[in-house]
């Protein structure tokens, strides 16, 4: 059974992502929403710094939250995919638990 994690704040402003990475496990999904989308720039380094293996995690970002803040979808790192709200619902269905870090 896997978990959908949502994170809504930037790691430079909050320890949410750090805590999320501590308890996320292979097969889980981390969905960046609201101000959490700024983490597309810091996620890889933060995970490496904490010794967290990102390769087993699905990393997503909510498209409208990303573009609203001036970040481009085509500039996303390869391991992060953008989803819309339909995709958000699909992720919630696909994962048994959801943990919302806010």
């Amino acid at each position: 059974m896997t978990t959908l994690h949502t994170v809504n704040k930037h790691s430079l402003n909050s320890d949410l992502l750090s805590s999320c990475l501590r308890v996320a496990r292979a097969g889980d999904c981390i969905l960046l929403i609201e101000d959490g989308i700024y983490n597309v720039r810091t996620l890889e380094d933060l995970a490496a710094g904490q010794g967290c293996e990102l390769s087993g995690l699905q990393c997503c970002v909510l498209r409208d939250d990303l573009t609203a803040r001036g970040l481009a979808e085509n500039a996303l790192p390869d391991f992060i995919s953008a989803v819309d709200h339909t995709g958000f619902v699909a992720l919630a269905c696909a994962h048994r638990q959801s943990v919302h870090w806010f």
Binding site: N8, I33, E34, D35, D65, D84, H85, T86, F88, V89, A92, C93, F102
Partner: peptide, 26 residues
Amino acid sequence: LYAAPYSSQASLSALRFAQAALEQGH
């Protein structure tokens, strides 16, 4: 939903999730 409207984006996020879920027949 734990947050007030306008003070953060949470209310809009929750609303949009709800709308999408209902559109998909959930």
